[in-house]
């Protein structure tokens, strides 16, 4: 089963948050949504969680019992312990409060030794793991995660992605937004949003092939408006192509796409 949106537009009053978005979220895969602040990532995910109705277009969602959602910032109910959080979500999902799934998730997330700790007393990474566990608890068919790894340490990020990848491997359709492009490369499909519109979409390997022109590596950029830092050197976009082009990464493609969109907008 594939969930997703077709021709989606979302307007908040006179402000357009999303326009012309097509996205398929197949089961057993991770689909990543990336983009800068205000690109429309959270709005798209909230549409996919059934929290924001579309102004136009079609949305295909499973029933709420088959949907897991982690909002931005949320990592469980702060005044409940880890175990109580899981028990509450299990009860709401009509599972037995002491379902073996609770123990399984506690073990897999490394939260087993913190089961009696209040959620508000957990570290950022642990709290996010709890949030993802709560979303995963009812074994959803669609898992929607809004920036699950933002603001947490690299080890916790890696742990979380293992957890998310395991869910996808078991057949869950995963839709995750991220501010980190290296994380998007783990996904089977990437949708890059810019100002509410699709900038680039496709499998990460194919997306890098869609780059218009060429990216070169230089010590001093000829046109600073088309250049960005990469380590101690610069990368620069040459729309007309360049024989000295380097193999672009997903980050390069996203930057070039936004530069190209900006140039079109200015034109």
């Amino acid at each position: 089963m594939t969930w997703g949106v077709a021709g989606l537009a979302v307007w908040f009053g006179a402000r357009c948050a999303l326009e012309g978005i097509d996205l398929e979220v197949p089961e057993g895969q991770i689909t990543a949504v990336v983009g800068g602040d205000g690109a429309g990532k959270s709005t798209l995910l909230r549409v996919m969680a059934g929290l924001v109705p579309p102004s136009r277009g079609a949305v295909r969602l499973p029933d709420r019992r088959q949907l897991g959602y982690l909002p931005t910032r949320a990592g469980g109910f702060g005044d409940l312990t880890v175990e109580e959080n899981l028990e509450f979500v299990a009860s709401a999902a009509r599972l037995h409060r002491s379902t073996p799934r609770v123990d399984e998730l506690l073990q897999r997330t490394g939260l087993a030794s913190f089961r009696r700790r209040l959620a508000r007393d957990l570290s950022g990474g642990m709290r996010q793991k709890l949030g993802v566990s709560l979303a995963l608890l009812p074994s959803p068919r669609l898992l929607v995660l809004d920036e699950p790894t933002t603001g947490i340490d690299p080890v916790s990020r890696s742990d979380l992605w293992r957890l998310i990848a395991a869910a996808a491997a078991q057949g869950t359709a995963v839709l995750a937004s991220s501010a980190y492009l290296d994380e998007a490369e783990r996904a089977a499909w990437v949708l890059v949003l810019h100002e509410g519109r699709t900038l680039v979409a496709g499998p990460p390997a194919e997306v890098t092939g869609t780059l218009p022109g060429a990216v070169v590596e230089v010590d001093a950029p000829a046109d600073p408006a088309r250049a960005w830092r990469r380590g101690s050197r610069w990368r620069e976009w040459r729309p007309e192509g360049d024989p000295a082009a380097v193999a672009p990464g997903l980050e390069d493609v996203v930057i070039v796409a936004s530069l190209a969109a900006g140039a079109e907008g200015a034109g």
Partner: peptide, 17 residues
């Protein structure tokens, strides 16, 4: 309001309640 501030109101909204 605490639920809203912590973002858990959205979590409740999506749960099968």
């Amino acid at each position: 309001v605490r639920e809203r501030q912590e973002g858990t109101l959205e979590q409740l909204a999506v749960m099968p309640l």
